[in-house]
Amino acid sequence: MKVRFKVNGVEREIEVEPYELLADVLRERLGLKALKKGCWRGECGLCTILMDGEPVKSCIILAVEADGSEIYTVEGFSEDGRPSPLQESFIRNAGLQCGFCTPGFIVVGEYLARKPRISKEEVKYALSGTICRCTGYKQIVDAVLEAHQEYRKE
């Protein structure tokens, strides 16, 4: 089956099998290796992407379901090799350790930080779809809230 979607701003058209997962197509076929699978069943959130502006777990979505959509992965947020304000905030706050889950958190983080209004409780709750085993989350939550302040200024 042929699917078309826009990935990180680029139109892509690709032949997929009906059973192929979106995560596998993005990772293995389009080479977006920052997207990880940590659980293979929608539990850990590492493969989170933005699909039409909403965070979704790409390991429990079929590639065909993404036909016609606009997709962003972590690779799509930096410009000219420069990290986004949210990515900068993760760096500043040490909101990462081993880094394996970080792409998932950056995606959800961008989604949250760009909202017009968010509370700390909302951020904690919204980030609970993604597992980080290293950081204990505090520095991730701080990073998102700090980036939110910057995005509001923009």
Binding site: K33, L35, S78, G81, I91, G99, T102, I106
Partner: peptide, 9 residues
């Protein structure tokens, strides 16, 4: 951190 937030690690 740069490598990790941009996904190139």
């Amino acid at each position: 951190a740069f490598d990790k937030v941009t996904g190139i690690a």
